[in-house]
Amino acid sequence: MVRNAKSKKSTNQLLIEQMMTKVATISQDIEKRGQSIFGQGNLLTLDEINDYSLEFLELFVLLLQAGEKVDRRSSEHKALRQFFSNFSQQIQIRGGNLEEFVRFIHFMQDVFLNNLETDSTLDFQQTREILLLLASVFNDIILDVFHVYLAEKERTIQAQQEELKHTSTPITEIWDGVLTLPIIGTLDSSRTMSVMENMLARIEKDRAKVVVIDVTGVQAIDSQVSHHLIQMIRAVGLMGAKAILTGIRPEIARAITSLNIDLSMVSTRATLSEGLKEAFALLSITVLAADVQHH
């Protein structure tokens, strides 16, 4: 009799009924597991863990109550996925581990599965449908969490790359009207763009007359890198400033000559200090030691 009545009910209803009979145990189990994962690393407070557990159960019930079948486009489904996205984002921000978080989601699913085992009133077909329903909902959740994780990682990498761009090419006004630009690493198109943009803006802002571009930190030079360097030097010239290229190591000089790159129009010096001397000479500045000045 009971079996007949149950067979007419939808999978969603069956699952709700099952949950309702053991809601206290389910909630307790989830909270306990949450505490052991997130509480130890101080990722979440006890209150937060309890709130998250209750909110999850509420949203899950709302999803099941929304219709006879779970609709992936429904607002309830979106709300549940959004809840997990926010939850995982918070865990990540606080330094949590994706693997632990996914294990926690699996644990939530296991709690429902364990519940199924103890319910002898469900027939095979009903149990199968509930299993499929749980698998579908929790798979979507795990996928969402994974997407959030990847997006967050990508954002972090981009931010680090931006920071690296700025810190790896510091433009310094070393003297009135003299800027230095040490280049470290390789010069690709994207980096050239950002360096040129910053450098030209600084020439205008600081009213620079000379820019010393130091390539001591450039490991290798190919035709593309040298092309970028020439573009940079031309841009400096268009702003009415003079560019001096310094720090061309013997290997780099050899590479430039083998590549038949014409740097004849570029003023070059062996070292940064020689470049600075040249910059001072261009500005008619003489630097003298204090004792020489006295005499």
């Binding site: 040129m196 943009e197 030209l200 803006a201 020439i203 205008e204 009213r207 573009q231 940079m232 031309r234 841009a235 010239g237 268009l238 702003m239 009415g240 400033a241 129009m265």
Partner: peptide, 22 residues
């Protein structure tokens, strides 16, 4: 302007036949 100089430098193939000043 800096942006103009930047864009021009990317397309120039030779040194310009004129001087430039800030």
């Amino acid at each position: 302007r800096p942006a103009t100089a930047y864009a021009l430098a990317l397309t120039m193939e030779d040194n310009p036949p004129f001087a430039c000043a800030l």
